[in-house]
Simulated scan of single mutants.
Amino acid sequence: MIGTFSAGPVGIFSVSQHGYDALLAADHPGTTASPFVALVAAAAVTERIGVGSYVSQAGVREPLLLASDVATLDLVSNGRARLALGAGHTPAEWDMLGAERPDVAGRVRRFQAVAEACRALLAGETVTIVGPEVRTCQARLTTPRPVQHRVPFTFGGGNTAILRWAGAHADVVGLSGLGRTLPDGYMHEVRWNGAGIDRQVDLIEQGASGRVHAPAREAFVQMVEVADDAESTALEIARRLHCDAAEVLASPYAWIGTVEEIRAAMADHERRWGITGYAVREAHLDAVDQVRAHLSQFPERAAIATGRN
């Protein structure tokens, strides 16, 4: 497909059978509010909903500072913080810091180093790393410390190495449906092809092969259209994205049709790809509420929308 989407700035929610499971904030320095400052404010006026970034950019975030932000959020929210981390893609975020944007392999290496360091720091370990991607010296979190024994981590994206690595290390693997970054530095090609998602899920399963419990999987929903004529709606979207309407209807990145058709599609996503959670763009929450209202009428079916509980 050669249609495009921007990854942000957006506000994102994760859907669960009992309502929204998490309030998640985009993390694009310079173009969005600081996610952790905003989430601390949200935590002060909520009691149960999880709070976290979606996703923090490992390429420009230092692990000690990022872990400190997450630990502070966890303390203020009484144990509701979570962290989603990606390798980063937007050249401007490196440019504004006067840093050179690494190639794909370099971004993957830094992502892994930052992820491992953050997890170790949040677990109370002292971390020293001397490497080309990350350098820390006896880094540790003395205070604040997280309330949770283990802060949940979401890793993912579309990169082959990251998906396999996420299968081995993530609590949740996020499938974005976003492909190559286009020359403007913000927009992406979309990757909604079912066979392509099959390959991505296979990579996750390869990474998770030695684990007792495989990570949960969630999809980043780019659009929601509650409509009586799903085929016509999908055809119009397919024209914009230069793809096949059948792929749009089958994709976990778009909810299209009546609420019953969307429910059935979600069940298909779980059977085929093991997707049991969804992060949804803020602009589509009214439409998502219609789907949730329908699911609540069928408790035995509601688990298809379960996020991270």
Score class of each variant (00 low, 15 high):
S56F: 11
S56N: 11
S56H: 10
S56L: 10
Q57A: 07
Q57P: 04
Q57V: 15
Q57W: 05
Q57K: 08
Q57D: 13
A58Y: 13
G59W: 06
V60D: 01
V60T: 14
V60I: 15
R61Q: 09
R61Y: 09
R61P: 04
R61K: 14
R61C: 08
R61S: 06
R61F: 09
P63D: 07
P63R: 09
L64V: 12
L64R: 06
L64N: 05
L64A: 12
L65I: 06
L65D: 09
L65C: 07
L66W: 08
L66N: 00
L66P: 04
A67M: 09
S68Y: 03
S68T: 13
S68D: 00
D69Q: 15
D69L: 08
D69P: 09
D69E: 15
V70A: 07
V70C: 05
V70N: 02
A71P: 11
T72Q: 11
T72P: 05
L73K: 10
L73R: 03
L73T: 01
L73M: 04
D74G: 06
D74A: 13
L75T: 14
L75C: 07
V76T: 03
S77L: 08
S77Q: 12
S77I: 06
N78T: 05
N78R: 15
G79E: 14
G79I: 12
G79M: 10
G79P: 13
G79V: 11
G79L: 11
R80P: 02
R80F: 10
R80S: 04
R80V: 08
A81C: 12
A81W: 04
A81H: 13
A81I: 11
A81K: 06
R82D: 01
R82L: 14
R82V: 03
R82M: 15
L83M: 13
L83G: 02
L83R: 02
L83C: 11
A84C: 14
A84Y: 10
L85G: 00
L85Q: 00
L85T: 00
L85M: 07
L85A: 01
L85W: 02
L85H: 03
G86N: 05
G86Y: 10
G86D: 00
G86F: 10
A87K: 13
A87N: 02
G88C: 14
G88P: 08
G88Q: 09
G88D: 03
G88L: 06
G88V: 09
G88T: 12
H89L: 04
H89F: 15
H89I: 04
H89V: 06
T90C: 07
T90G: 02
T90I: 07
T90F: 07
P91F: 02
P91L: 00
